[in-house]
Design a protein around this nucleic acid. Structure first.
Lengths: 266, 266
DNA sequence: AGAAGGACCAGTGGTCCGTA
DNA sequence: AGAAGGACCAGTGGTCCGTA
């Protein structure tokens, strides 16, 4: 097949935890829901959210017979099978293998390459059947990946780290340096992930703030949607740059050349 | 603004018909539903369909107070306002203006140009706001068109005639000839529309059956989704061509050159 | 009958938040 | 606490079929 031999890499030990049979959590539902945590420029579209479905009484696990299909015993099986999650990522240097129940960043980036291969297969099939051919990693591709046995690939995870992969594609040197620095400082994956935004915004700046063009110009990156937050950061930074440039010019006659200093890139 | 002066063209007289207050139709729901009309290669995905919502008793028109917003009195107004539809299209020659309560094909194609302008505006706004920028005429564009007062533009209509517009873009000579022929024969719009498929399939053949590439190569056409039926026709015809070519070759050694005759284009 | 378009539906992009 | 991912939701592409 078209799969690499190292696809199974780092998959040797998934997290195995016994199934918790949904014990009633009488201590749950605590705290007044503070809906006004500012910070992220989100706003709107976040009002209602589902409450926990929690079965009312004890041990009514037999509610699985509602839909007839039951797609391939994925997850909890018939008799005390165990649920699995991928090991959490840790910040590793390039080439470093994660120890213990952890996965490294080379493995993370490898997942993006795998998704690309699944997309290529989906495209081949679509073209052969004369159907619409996806140009991006869509739901259809994630479904295909799962069907093909790559159950460790899922949409939320891949979308979560897209910009980290983008930096790896666009400036591997910078990406590697960032990994080494964050590993040395003992930072966790979350803060490394956050730190990946800035160098990308700088790259966008050097390309006229067109982050879509930056993604599309790179063959392995062009198949990924530009993450909303990265897009927003680029937009904010562009506005900053424009405002700063305007302030610098002030009442002076416009020369047509772009302003340097605060309004420039890098 | 960016609108042409002739946008109002042919809009002088919309069909005006008095509102029929939903009289009980005791004669309705006739005929055994023959779900097996063959013909079109559709299959699947067509099982259930809504039944008429028909209010049970007389004159309960006051059910409008459910949603608070009530978007701009579009449609039936407060007191006996009149419902409007666009005049139906008729087959006209290039340059010919439709007489009576009809619209001509130049007007039809003009609607596609208008949609393009609405898309360009949506794109400008999106770029300015740093939001995702549509490359095709999407729901968002149709919504924008409606909001901008172009209530005569709607998705089902535009999608219905896309391939007719495609022929107009890709081979105006052939499109014009077809219009003249069908007008002379007194054919209706439906059969003219059907007849637009074949020349497009021939064009696709000449481009290696890649109808998406054909659309994308044309600046005014690339913003429209390839219609499902056109895609299917191209696929079927390609399979025919391949099968025919294979049959021609038969047991003879392969020469590598493409077969002519039934397997060729045009 | 031929045709215009409201409104429906399956599957999408996006990501929250219950889970471990 | 930090993190993985099931599952939800608003809005999409696609077009049927009740309407005129």
């Amino acid at each position: 097949g078209t799969h690499h031999a190292l696809d199974a890499l780092s998959q040797e030990g998934l997290s195995e935890e016994p199934v918790h049979h949904h014990q009633d959590q009488t201590d749950a539902a605590g705290g007044g829901s503070s809906n006004w945590e500012v910070g992220q420029a989100k706003s709107k579209k976040q009002q209602k959210r589902r409450k926990k479905p929690m079965v009312t009484s004890v041990e009514t696990d037999d509610d699985a017979n509602e839909g007839d299909d039951d797609q391939e015993g994925n997850g909890v099986g018939v008799l005390g099978m165990e649920r699995q999650r991928e090991h959490p990522f840790i910040v590793t240097e390039p080439g470093e293998v994660a120890r213990g129940k952890k996965n490294g960043l080379d493995y993370l980036f490898h997942l993006y390459e795998q998704c690309r291969e699944f997309l290529l297969q989906v495209q081949t099939i679509a073209k052969d059947r004369g159907e619409k051919c996806p140009t991006k990693v869509t739901n259809q591709v994630f479904r295909y990946a799962k069907k093909s046995g790559a159950s460790y690939i899922n949409k939320p995870k891949m979308r979560h780290y897209v910009h980290c992969y983008a930096l790896h594609c666009l400036d591997e040197e910078a990406s590697n340096a960032l990994r080494r620095a964050f590993k040395e400082r003992g930072e966790n994956v979350g803060s490394w992930r956050q730190a990946c935004y800035k160098p990308l915004v700088d790259i966008a700046c050097r390309h006229g703030w067109d982050i879509d063009a930056v993604f599309n110009a790179h063959p392995r990156l062009s198949i990924w949607y530009v993450p909303t937050k990265l897009r927003q950061l680029c937009h904010l930074e562009r506005n900053n740059a424009v405002a700063t440039a305007a302030a610098l010019v002030g009442g002076i006659s416009c020369t047509g050349s772009s302003a340097s200093g605060r309004g420039g890139c890098g």
